[in-house]
Design a binder for these strands. Sequence first.
RNA 1: GCGAAGGUGGCGGAAUUGGCAGACGCGCUGGCCUUAGGAGCCAGUGCCUUCGGGCGUGCGGGUUCGAAUCCCGCCCUUCGCACCA
Length: 961
Amino acid sequence: MNEPYDPKAIEERWRDFWREKGFFKADIEDTARKFYYLNMFPYPSGKLHAGHGRNYILGDAIVRFLIMRGYNVLNPMGWDAFGLPAENAAIEQGVHPRDWTWRNIEEFKRQFRAWGVEYDWDREIATCEPEYYKWTQWLFLKLYERGLAYRAESEVNWCPHCDTVLANEQVVNGRCERCGSVVERKKLTQWFFKITAYAQRLLDDLEKLPDWPERVKLMQKNWIGRSEGALVTFRSERGDPIEVFTTRPDTLWGATFLVLAPEHPLVEKLTAPERRAEVEEYRRQAARQTEVERLSTEREKTGVFIGAYAKNPVNGEEIPIWIADYVLMGYGTGAIMAVPAHDERDFQFALKFGIPVVPVIAPPSGVARSYLMRGTFQEGLKGALAGAGFDFEEKDGALYVTLAEKDRERYISLVQGYLKPGSWTEVVGAGWQFVFPDEVANVGSLEEERAVLAKCQELEPAVRERRTVAELLWGVEFYRELLFHAEYGEMINSGPLTGTPGDQAVRRTCEWLEERGIGRYAVTYRLRDWLISRQRYWGAPIPMVHCERCGAVPVPEEELPVLLPDVPFIGKRGLADIPEFVATTCPRCGGPARRDTDTMDTFVDSAWYYLRYISPNDEEKAFDSELVNRWLPVDLYVGGVEHAILHLLYSRFITKALYDMGYLSFDEPFKRLFTQGMITYPAYWCPEHHWIPPGEVGEGNRCPHCGTELQVQVLAMSKSKKNVVPPDELIAKYGADTERLYTLFMGPPERDIEWSEEGVRGAWRFLSRLWALITEQLPRIKDVRDPVAPEGLDRAGEALWKKLHLTIKKVTEEFEGRLGLNTAIAALMELTSALGEYLEGETVDVRLVREVVRNLILLISPFTPFVAEELWSRLGEGGSVLETPWPEYDQRALAAGEVEIPVQINGKVRARLRLPSAVAEDEEALQEAALADPVVQARLAGKQVKRVIAVPGKLVSIVVG
RNA sequence: GCGAAGGUGGCGGAAUUGGCAGACGCGCUGGCCUUAGGAGCCAGUGCCUUCGGGCGUGCGGGUUCGAAUCCCGCCCUUCGCACCA
């Protein structure tokens, strides 16, 4: 028996080989055939687990492929090294965050080496080093110079546990993304980056990114949240302008109240004295509320009337002003016009607080309804309705009429004649009309609404407690679904614009408003400015000084970096707890001043790091524009979807800002983006002992500590949930190649997939088989050097030869295209099996065996580089696989030989023909061959052939009667 | 609620200008080897079957010689956003 496959014996031999040979070093000056491959750099938080492999092993395989294809590959790695966990560890364990961080970095590097994952380590960067964050600070100053960094007081998201503010993006469902605490709202003076100035370009330029996943682009699009509409100025009774934003200016005539956000600055000024106490109370309550409470969707609307009125500029109506927390200060103008007839939220609010509703848009359905209460009409109406062709139902003596809008007038005049004195009915559809025996009244304005209500109440005591017409109609179930709709439609009850069709309504109204100077077309975005201040120690200090005389003064560029003070103790307030850091002198006037004690959000560090890799040791500038412009945009950027919004949007923003400043000649940093899925694994939860490592779980899913039955969930591997598989153990048991192979084989790389120990063994078995097969053949193929051509081969040989070349094609195309490396590996497994079968045949051509073995080794080397190098060196061709060109497939393999053609009869496969490809590719010959086949003939006996469809190279389909 | 992606054997998944459904791997079954095996090797493995064949890609329709793939209508799952005016 041959030497068994023993990864321990072979892997260590190659671990330093590639590095020593310099295969992964990019030639930075030569961009003729450059490829910038980039993995999102990690936060060094502890140890790598098998789940991380999804990203790094994939990247390593791609890079090895590219190197063999002859690319000059730039493939750097670094550390997103600032951040809260380092600081927390420091506070808990008394170690300096830098020491903690570097210890983790060393561990990560050891694990990369064990995996055979290689980088150009000369370009390593760590964002926590002064040599790096000096330039993060430089970036801040550049943005400040351009007016893109500013300081403002604002309501911020405050995490009480982390003692710091959070960006909107770091608040998930009202909770801190990191620790899960409920986020509070607090007013603080903070630094912001003006990303909103780039909102439109960030949105438009998504079009320039055809090689990004649609999903990611859509998420960014939603996040930016552009909406078009109009800004319209209402006026208070005293003439204060109140600007509102609306996407539905066509509903302006239906505005029956205004709502301001509780924090709106005008509230103070406008509130009537007698309403003040209640308004103040509501505002206090709103401020106290957490995001979670405020955002809970189920919540009933709340709000208070502030005792003031505003004039609707389009029709002069006086409408009440309310405050309510469903209006957000941070979006639009913080004030809305409420059109209850055409906005669901406004409708709920109006119904609850008894505010009138006036319909101003006809529903596109063109359907109207009318309800006739029992006893309100004379006998004979039913017959008349039926005779006139109206549709109605009768229930308990009441009539429910459904009519088309065009029949409205006809219906009204008919029904009016049958109403008993003192009764009425309504027609609810495109507008609401009340039909009395003596008149027809429309609800087309607030005035008319009052009049109709008054008349009804006079006639019918039972409706006297109804506050509005809407409330009255709401009492009739039959009308409810027609009282509010949010669709576009013909404008009604809208003064001069009445009759404007729905598809022109918004545009025409905007024009009309602009002509009169009442309002104008406007666009708003959901995107807010990027809050970058953090009250923490372990981050890049914001390079600003606060001087009593000069105000906020930037630290001069030549004084950078503003170093983090080297202190043994870190307080919870970060730099603000370190007096010797705070005290400084003003760079402008020389007087006493205080340093800004905020550090920057770590997303700032990672928003530009891909530029630094080009010249990581440059002491003169952040990056070398000339070289950066040649190497970027990054050709392929690979990372997790969790960064789809934050990191990627910020990086795009910073790139555009630097482009505008003239530092860059491109304005999108990442040409192609690939988001790999996560590896999941069962996680076990004990209510008392929390997360239990899967290895410790007892019989029947019991907690090893208390015996409680555990809850099992399949979740992304993560240290915090204790459901990780450590690579060290896998490598000790199976070797790194097996882990690499399984990681890439388990499924398409973009999908989330559950880790399986059995699957790992499958990969191991395959490698063992491959090893045995090749080492057995080595003695007889080692010295063979003659090339092989398909012509001289027998049938089995030709089939294998063909398989080889189809495999080369398949693997190459997966690497170059969609990265479905799982199917590439499947193809390599097939080729291996085919080789095994060939070797068991009668005649064996050693030239062909050598050719297959040689290419098999090369093709599999990106996946399993250790075993590939080992076998390659034993094959005796010399050199490394990494300096051997990637195999090219032979075109002839696509055409040569015989093919199998299925024959369908009435849609079912009834025969398979083996035909020379020349016949299979010729439509007529193919058809003839199919009809001549004995199996087919037997099937067709006694039946009439109606039609024959021969698809060259594919199949033959016969239709019989 | 809005938006997107997806639904294929016992499991992960293959197959997309419409052309042999289930590649490859796991698991399972049987056999071999072994003192033993949670190792390895070989064979089988979509379901049903009266062994002719029939049925099968979430469900129901449709287009087509032919549909996992295209069209219409539902159901379910996952993800993102969520009072955004």
